[in-house]
Write a protein that binds this DNA or RNA. Structure first.
Lengths: 245, 245
DNA sequence: AAGTGGTCTAGACCACCGC
DNA sequence: CGGTGGTCTAGACCACTTC
């Protein structure tokens, strides 16, 4: 018997189907600023309850495809910008979204003791054993970023690390799903070594992204520092105003 | 008769009260990883329906205070990191959050014709008349950022701009509420002029944030470029993994 | 099997917009 | 004023976790 790779249907809910149907309807029949049918009409149209309609619309509103106006209606949003909230993605996914093909070169792989900063970030005692992975990240075979990742040895030991496979997939397989991360973005000036590795002029500016990844339960299991070439990489995000309280 | 400044109660809904009550309960009686009472229990406890409880919990989950596990329960999140999704805020608010007192110095205020890039970003014809505001942003009386803002003249004319007041408030008063913005963050090397203005060494690295602000309906009405001192300013955001489809 | 959160229904009333 | 989205109820069943 072979182990199948998730051949089963992932189960789609009504509100997902309704959201998809509305999305299609908008794409085929509506333009920006056009009003959608009212929620009551959509109920009848798709044969579902109002809450299901609202759940579907909430998905589309979250994407920025539509927007609600309280006493007035739901309207198609301006399609100029797809509303992108940044998501936690692997380097490969990120590059694919940007139209690049991602590859990596491992520069170092070692077992180390956590220094003060890493220990504090991960909430572990200083000196704890960690797995350290340093990789050069390439996009279309040209340097894009340099990344240092530190993981508690208890989470992933150096001996179990598979060079070819995605780190996040390996963590997931080990029961350590990283579902969220806190990032700090700053601008730095590259030192000579980093500049050479990234194939840019020394003293060039670069983006330094420091990331602490955590599990669903809030366990901090990944500390990463990634230096991106500023001539090839920019960080994009959409922000919204906090509704008035 | 004097015009009152919103003296009226903003109306609080049940789910807000329940959310506040649960938040207090967590603060006073629970620790990270502790389970909350089940939704059924909370219904009885606060005398509301299940949907209201769920709406309240959704707020707290959005803040990162709690997290849900499907067949298991709702738990208090690890409090190490307050879960901060970046919100669209004014410079003053942003600085206040960081513990600084914000001030500004207007460096230039003029009526200009939109160049190619600005016109494309705002979706207006090149050459359209724009109001241009250049400000030096100070935190605790020391330079923090330099900002250029461009607005279509139809949105805000230079003659109506009040120097002392918040730009966003003025726009809001004119019926042009900016409720969301798309930002691009990159690292740059400062030129001599900017470095002098920001009081840092020439060729220092800095964060360049380009922002396009839009109204609820998707009208693009603000183009801004802000250069932040990298030694004083970092950008923080939390990201989550896209749920599996 | 029991208990949890996730989905869904069929209603009701409230707050807001536009005429 | 009628129509809209926003809140809320009192149920039901489904999917999942835990034992």
């Amino acid at each position: 018997m072979t182990t199948q790779e998730l051949p089963i249907m992932p189960k789609t809910y009504k509100y997902e189907k309704v959201a998809a149907a509305i999305r299609d309807f908008i794409g085929s029949s509506l333009s920006p600023f056009d009003a959608l049918p009212s929620e009551r009409e959509l109920m009848a149209q798709y044969g579902v309850s109002r809450m299901t309609v609202r759940q579907a619309i909430a998905i589309l509103a979250d994407e920025g495809l539509v927007y609600n106006v309280h006493g007035s209606g739901t309207y198609v949003g301006s399609s100029d910008l797809v509303y992108k909230t940044p998501k936690l993605t692997s380097f490969s996914e990120d590059m694919a979204n940007r139209g690049y093909k991602a590859t990596s070169r491992i520069l170092a792989l070692s077992r180390e003791h956590a220094d003060e900063g890493i220990a504090r970030s991960l909430g572990i005692p200083p000196g704890s054993e960690c797995t350290h992975i340093r990789r050069l990240r390439l996009a279309d075979n040209k340097p894009m970023a340099m990344e240092d990742v530190y993981l508690p040895r208890t989470v992933l030991d150096i001996e179990h690390f598979q060079l070819g496979e995605s780190l996040y997939q390996q963590l997931s397989a080990g029961g350590h799903d990283i579902v969220r991360a806190d990032q700090e973005i700053k601008a730095i000036t590259l030192d000579a070594d980093s500049a050479r590795l990234l194939d840019v002029a020394p003293n060039a500016a670069a983006l330094l992204v420091t990331r602490v990844g955590s599990t669903r339960k809030g366990h901090l299991i990944e500390f990463a520092r990634t230096i991106y070439r500023s001539d090839r990489y920019t960080f994009q995000l959409a922000v919204t105003r906090e509704p008035e309280k």
